[in-house]
């Protein structure tokens, strides 16, 4: 187990090194500075998404769900499309990154808060119910987004399209610092709950029997997941199926239920996948496609494979 974890760490470092130092141009200081920022942004989002997906799956006792589906990705697209549709691609709300970031994260968290209020007020708090409501809202957001996207001027649409896919090419330094701070605070807060995770994966009834304050923990974890996803999406854009991919690979590779091992390994796998993907995008595809499109494609195909395998056995 230790060995595998070390292997992952070495691999991750190797990919990072390759990404940083491969083909450094002459004015290497500038290039390196940009690359370091990129790596940082990638590691940050990759880690956050992997962690969020892992605890989300533990909470729901399900390996085929990802928190991105509760409507946050669609909401992100709706906000971005809305801004460009009403203010245009060159307006302040769409070019000022700080403003856009704050605005987006704010609305996303507001959405999650409303969702919780709506559902946890009632009796029979079913987690799946919450997810389905989120997903349906997501479809609704999607309809509205589609409507605006069709009407948008093709040039503006290119800007929208740019936002449809996560991109690490233009990460704003201030935003990066802000995200690091937010994520660090959230991660620290999440530490309190990490001891519950193994027992939570036995399911609600066992967890309650073992003395876990279940509803309290679930509420808190959901908030943590929502913040992680909202921040990483607002920082670089949606990568819907990254979490699904890396967490399942993590389970298959590590073959354990212990979160103390799963958490670091899925985060490492996520970083490897993203940076490796980015390398491929830059060197092999020469930016013809984006890393999130590739990851979603691979993640999607892998998920279908999982479904098919499950339905065979």
């Amino acid at each position: 187990m230790k060995l595998k974890l070390t292997m992952l760490a070495v691999l991750a470092l190797g990919v990072i090194a390759a990404f940083l130092f491969l083909d450094l141009p002459h004015n290497w200081e500038y290039a390196l500075d940009r690359r370091v920022k990129k790596v940082l942004a990638i590691a940050l989002t990759g880690g956050a998404i992997a962690y969020a997906t892992l605890i989300f799956q533990t909470m729901t006792n399900n390996r085929i769900l990802t928190p991105n589906v509760i409507g946050l990705d669609s909401l992100y697209m709706l906000i971005q499309t809305f801004v460009i549709f009403f203010f245009g691609a060159v307006s302040l709300p769409s070019t000022n990154k700080m403003m856009n970031f704050g605005f987006t994260v704010g609305i996303m968290l507001l959405f999650v808060a409303v969702l919780y209020k709506l559902i946890f007020k009632r009796e029979g708090r079913n987690l799946f119910f919450l997810l389905l409501v989120g997903l349906v809202m997501g479809t609704m957001f999607g309809s509205m987004t589609t409507f605006m996207q069709v009407l948008i001027d093709p040039n503006d649409f290119l800007v929208v399209q740019g936002k449809m896919f996560a991109s690490f090419n233009n990460v704003n330094t201030d935003l990066l610092v802000l995200s690091v701070i937010i994520l660090a605070v959230v991660a620290l807060y999440a530490m309190r709950f990490s001891k519950y995770l193994d027992a939570m994966s036995l399911g609600k009834e066992h967890a309650v029997n073992l003395g876990i304050p279940y509803n309290f923990v679930v509420m808190n974890l959901l908030v943590i997941v929502a913040i992680l996803i909202a921040v990483s999406t607002a920082l670089v854009g949606p990568i819907t199926f990254l979490g699904l991919l890396v967490v399942n690979v993590g389970y298959q590779f590590m073959k354990t239920y212990r979160h103390s091992i799963l958490i670091p390994s899925t985060m490492l796998i996520s970083v490897i996948a993203l940076i490796g993907g980015q390398l491929i995008v830059e060197r092999v595809f020469t930016f013809e496609t984006t890393v999130s499109v590739i990851i979603n494609f691979i993640g999607g195909a892998y998920f279908l494979y999982l479904l098919l395998r499950e339905s065979k056995s």
């Binding site: 399900n62 390996r63 994966s201 036995l202 399911g203 009834e205 066992h206 029997n209 073992l210 003395g211």
Partner: peptide
């Protein structure tokens, strides 16, 4: 409470 009382339900399917 979990040191005082334990419960086992009839169906104990776990995903792990």
């Amino acid at each position: 409470l979990a040191k005082k009382i334990s419960i086992l339900k009839q169906s104990n399917q776990i995903n792990l």
